[in-house]
Simulated assay, not measured.
Amino acid sequence: MSPHFSFLQLLTALTGAWSLTTVSEVSVAAGSSITIPCLYEPKFRDHVKYLCRGYDWLLCKYVMKSTQAPNSLGMISDDTSQQVFTVTIRDVQTRDAYYWCAVERIDSDMKQFFELVVTTGVPGLRVDNQRVKGFVGEDLTITFHHSNTGETQWCRLGGLCVRWPSGEIDGTAVIITLLRNDFFTVTMRTLRTGSRGWYFCTKGALRMPVHITVEQRPPTKPRMVTVLSPTTSERVKPTSASAASEVPTTKGDKSATSSDSPSSIIIIIIVTVSLVFIVMVTIVILLVLKTCKKIRTLPATTAAGEETYSEVTYTRNSHGESIRVPASNDTHATYSTLATQK
């Protein structure tokens, strides 16, 4: 920090600049972006806000105004409900070190000085995201990385500060945990809607601003559960997440199978196809067995003009020859003679 900074603080205090509040010294890596909040009094809600660059206020140059559209240098956003306007500076360079956030007035503008400590390496104090979100009634933990030393604090912009290890800000408990030599966490317990707004942590002379949004956690959407039974299939919409885990029963006190994933449909298809295949195979086997049975019961066939005898008897004629006589007295029978060889 510049040795003349204490003189600038005294000068701005004498000119009434303390109607604006911001962070004094922020570490940022060259080429990256940084967002700086500037808190103003309610009477300046409708005034034009702007950012000025330069160490000397009388010689500083306009960078952007709240009435202008965002450009390559950055943008200004004004939250009139919280009386805070934020300046986002893009592609920070080592020459861009000294700035003023200011509010236009008819006589003399309100202004507040802040300094960017631009490094070509890792910033001395940094956070992964300057904007975080929490839910009412829940805890929120933010992790900060640092390479410098000094006292660790968590402060509300324009409000109270909590020193390590714990304290309270506007009814919200704060716990600061030093985990290692290069990072620490800040936990805000049981968030309230009034906990939203801009905060900043300090490590030595460096600051890092963070905006916290607090919302009501949305209710859990009920899931659609597919209930399958031997006779019916229907969808049931449970009234809560716990009801979704319960499986209703079908008629006859038989257990019903439920699933809410496509895999159950695949299983049903596989089982159905298997049953159809088994039925078809059974039918084919029955047909084959029936055909074989018919073949075995068919009578023996003979050539035209021939008869088949089931019983044959032999007798001798007057010449001593043996002849075959059919069991029936059919006059059209054909006889065969058997000659006996001696």
Rank of each mutant, 00 (worst) to 15 (best):
102 A>V: 08
103 V>R: 02
103 V>S: 15
105 R>N: 14
105 R>F: 01
108 S>K: 13
108 S>A: 13
110 M>D: 12
111 K>Y: 03
112 Q>H: 08
112 Q>Y: 05
113 F>C: 01
115 E>I: 00
116 L>M: 04
116 L>Y: 02
117 V>L: 08
117 V>R: 04
119 T>V: 13
121 G>H: 03
121 G>C: 01
122 V>M: 12
122 V>W: 01
129 N>W: 00
130 Q>I: 00
132 V>D: 06
135 F>A: 11
136 V>N: 11
139 D>E: 13
140 L>R: 12
141 T>K: 08
145 H>W: 12
149 T>Y: 02
149 T>S: 13
149 T>P: 04
152 T>C: 02
152 T>Q: 05
152 T>F: 01
153 Q>S: 14
153 Q>E: 09
156 R>Q: 11
157 L>A: 06
159 G>S: 14
160 L>S: 14
161 C>G: 09
162 V>W: 03
165 P>T: 13
169 I>F: 04
169 I>G: 07
171 G>Q: 08
173 A>S: 13
174 V>Y: 05
176 I>G: 13
176 I>M: 07
178 L>M: 06
178 L>W: 00
182 D>T: 08
182 D>L: 00
183 F>H: 15
186 V>M: 06
186 V>R: 07
187 T>S: 12
187 T>I: 02
187 T>L: 05
188 M>V: 05
190 T>H: 14
192 R>P: 01
192 R>M: 12
194 G>T: 15
195 S>A: 15
196 R>Y: 00
196 R>Q: 15
197 G>L: 11
199 Y>D: 10
199 Y>P: 10
199 Y>H: 02
201 C>L: 03
202 T>L: 11
203 K>E: 05
203 K>W: 00
206 L>Q: 06
206 L>K: 02
207 R>G: 00
207 R>W: 00
208 M>W: 01
208 M>P: 00
210 V>D: 07
210 V>R: 08
211 H>S: 09
214 V>F: 03
215 E>T: 11
216 Q>H: 14
216 Q>M: 13
217 R>I: 04
218 P>I: 07
219 P>V: 01
219 P>Q: 04
219 P>S: 03
223 R>E: 15
224 M>N: 13
226 T>Q: 09
228 L>S: 00
232 T>Y: 10
233 S>A: 14
233 S>W: 10
234 E>I: 10
235 R>L: 09
235 R>V: 13
236 V>K: 15
239 T>K: 14
240 S>W: 09
